[in-house]
Write a protein that binds this DNA or RNA. Structure first.
Lengths: 223, 223
DNA sequence: TAGATTGTTAATCGATTAACAATC
DNA sequence: TAGATTGTTAATCGATTAACAATC
């Protein structure tokens, strides 16, 4: 019954949220069916790729008609594991941490930030949106009392490694790292970075390419 | 003289900022040379991959010794185009936009946010760190008066497409999109997403895999 | 029916990894 | 010198894309 997630390629996983957003939009607009062709067109992908991706979710379509939007949504949500709610703690209540705590989109992913921790005592007792802020030294006790799967790291790069190790020592098995620092942790810990530097590097590279493409064109024009 | 960036694979581009951070750290610690083996060990990569990546920057090492840290740093910075400063405007001065405007790491990338724009008049005239906030309706005039290459988008998903189109119509050729929305823009515009949903999808998938790995192990153990 | 769209199998493409000679 | 490390060439691996029969 369950489609084994282990075989789904990471590039496919990365595209699933885009499909999901678009499908939900179509659903709100009252549509019932959609073709891979349409999805591809809208997202700038090739139809064949969309079909391949969809087949990973286990959903089958009907030739000429396409896929049932509601079934596709359910399948993607399930494939991503977003149908089970997951609790997370946030460490670091600075500007970025604060923005993450207040972000309302997370419940779409089944993610709930239940508490935040900061080293700065001025912040203790305050709330970031709905999320209470405690002292870093309370992390261990908090994690003993609550079942939390994920640690969201938004501390300065300088402290990222030590905080990560603290979380791991408290039993956290997955870390979403927003600090600009590569963490060195045991194999068994899942780490996912959201690294501005990496993202900007790709943007920079694309811009550079675009410019040299244009140079290329003008060169050719001059021949 | 210049290494043509167009041939450097995107996966390599994505790893360069990690090398750069680590190299700078070694430099601060007073080291002069480093081997690909060491870098690989520290970042959880394979030495062969680090060597391949480094070769893309045009830097050669010395067998048994490794690479000159300062030259490697310069080469990576140049390869990424981070040695030229780039001005950007930010659109959306909410929690995330505010965090981006105040982020001090951008000058490492040669990126400078010179102005922010928001639809909410309460924010006009304020400053996010050093960055002044203006009305969205001032964007066009501002871009006529200042040379800005990049638009940083941190508006609600609902408005992302229209704001992006506005930026493009004002001549912006590269957009760094933090809104959870896939933009549909002309080919010539470079778009880079930093999408929390995508990042979290990968984290979710990795956790799921890890769990089924464990299941697998216990199954095997029972044989 | 005709034609658009699906799902599958095979080919292509590109990145990673292995193998190994060169070298400090 | 011996051995660690480099750079290059070739093999492998995995994702994308093409081709095409099936089908509504």
């Amino acid at each position: 019954m369950d489609i084994p997630n282990r075989d789904i390629p990471i590039p496919t996983i990365k595209r699933l949220p885009s499909y999901l957003r678009l499908l939900k939009q179509y659903q709100e607009e009252g549509q019932k069916m959609v073709s891979a062709t349409t999805l591809a067109e809208e997202l700038g992908l090739k139809p064949i790729q969309v079909r391949k991706d969809i087949s990973c979710t286990g959903i089958e379509g009907r030739p000429k008609v396409g896929f049932t939007i509601s079934r596709l949504i359910d399948a993607i949500v399930h494939t991503l594991g977003w149908d089970n709610s997951t609790d997370a703690i946030l460490v670091g209540a600075g500007h970025l941490g604060s923005a993450l705590a207040r972000y309302e989109g997370f419940d779409t992913y089944g993610l709930k930030i239940v508490a935040a921790f900061d080293i700065d005592e001025v912040k203790w007792g305050a709330k970031l949106g709905e999320v209470p802020v405690y002292s870093i030294s309370d992390i261990s006790d908090y994690l003993k009392a609550h079942h939390v799967n994920i640690g969201v790291l938004a501390v300065p790069a300088m402290h990222a490694q030590e905080v990560a190790e603290l979380l791991v020592s408290c039993g956290i098995m997955a870390i979403w790292n927003f600090a600009p620092k590569d963490l060195k942790l045991p194999e068994r810990v899942v780490v996912q970075r959201t690294d501005l530097a990496t993202s900007f590097a790709v943007l920079s590279a694309k811009v550079k390419r675009k410019i040299s493409d244009e140079d290329l064109v003008s060169e050719v024009d001059e021949w």
